[in-house]
């Protein structure tokens, strides 16, 4: 269980996180989605007590992070896989973690094995690790203390496709066992498979949040006809919101309503379906377009 309430962080005149409120429930994987610089990492650092918030508060397992005794045993945190001493070996980093948490050293071997770092890899200095290996080590570190809550910032970065798939399975299994998982990404594709809930953030503000199913359902309908341009006009006349999608049109309406309209106007339908993840992607891009660093040409 993680909560953030009216969380705000200002740096001078710049507001990095603006009045963010959300909840991550046990048994779910919550995807924390936003473009680069949207404030995801700042939010996560505030949750872990590393960055003092300007206003608002966060709790983990019902307490402020700093009130957790031996927090590594409650919360698994991976904020930046590259933030490790390059001169230490992977095994040494886990050993230090196990020492602080008061764990048996055999746990280190178990975690190395779990994330697929071999004996010889674990004995190498982290400076020689690829980003993917650092992520695996970071995930091993987060899981070390058998936590009920996982807070992972862009853990899929640098993982190969097999690694991403493995991580999804791991997080799914973790949540299915009752764990709470908060997982950030700037790529919808990366987390839509595994996330139950989504919190979308842009320029420090929450722009959408809810269950993936809800957001998918509300993401509209894709329609393709023999003459999209003409049909778009008809749809707009009917007061519907239409945007051009990569193939066809994205309409904020139920398929039934659109099909009926098409029949009325004698338009030939080529494709008609709920937009689902394509619509979610579109929505994500739109919601964050104003906030994204690369300006989308209007």
């Amino acid at each position: 269980m993680i909560t953030a309430e009216n969380l705000t962080k200002r740096y001078g005149g710049y507001t990095a996180v603006d009045d963010v409120t959300f909840e991550v429930r046990p048994g779910t994987v919550t995807g924390f989605l936003g473009p680069n610089g949207a404030g995801k990492s700042t939010c996560m650092r505030m949750m872990c007590g590393l960055t003092p918030p300007t206003a608002g508060a966060t709790t983990v397992l019902g307490k402020p992070y700093a009130a957790l005794p031996n927090p590594g045993r409650h919360v698994g945190v991976l904020l930046d896989a590259s933030a490790q001493h390059t001169g230490r070996t992977g095994r040494e980093v886990l050993t230090l973690g196990a020492m602080v948490m008061g764990l048996d050293r055999s746990r280190v071997d178990e975690m190395l094995d779990l994330v697929g770092l071999t004996e010889s890899e674990s004995g190498r200095r982290i400076g020689n690790y690829s980003l993917g290996m650092r992520q695996r080590l970071g995930i091993a570190h987060a899981l070390l203390g058998d936590p009920q809550v996982l807070i992972l910032d862009e853990p899929a970065n640098g993982l190969d496709p097999a690694g991403i798939r493995w991580m999804r399975g791991l997080l799914r299994g973790y949540a299915d066992e009752g764990g709470t998982v908060l997982l950030s990404s700037h790529l919808l594709h990366e987390i839509e498979v595994v996330a139950d809930e989504l919190v979308v953030i842009g320029r420090g503000r929450i722009v959408a949040q809810g269950s993936k199913a809800e957001l998918m359902a509300s993401s509209g309908t894709t329609v393709r006809t023999t003459d999209d341009a003409a049909f778009a006009g008809r749809l707009q006349e009917a007061g519907l919101q239409v945007t051009a999608a990569p193939s066809g049109l994205l309409v904020q309406a139920e398929p039934l309503q659109i099909g009926t309209l098409a029949a009325t106007h004698g338009v030939v339908l080529v494709e008609l379906k709920e937009a689902g993840s394509a619509g979610l992607e579109e929505m994500f891009l739109q919601l964050t377009a104003d906030d994204a660093r690369e300006e989308v040409a209007a």
Partner: peptide
């Protein structure tokens, strides 16, 4: 742990340790 529709994913074993006190 093997869940339907997923490849079998191994989860870390549970630690049956007493409730942690501060370090």
């Amino acid at each position: 742990q093997t869940a339907p529709g997923r490849t079998g994913v191994r989860l870390p074993s549970r630690l049956n340790l007493p409730e942690p006190t501060r370090v």
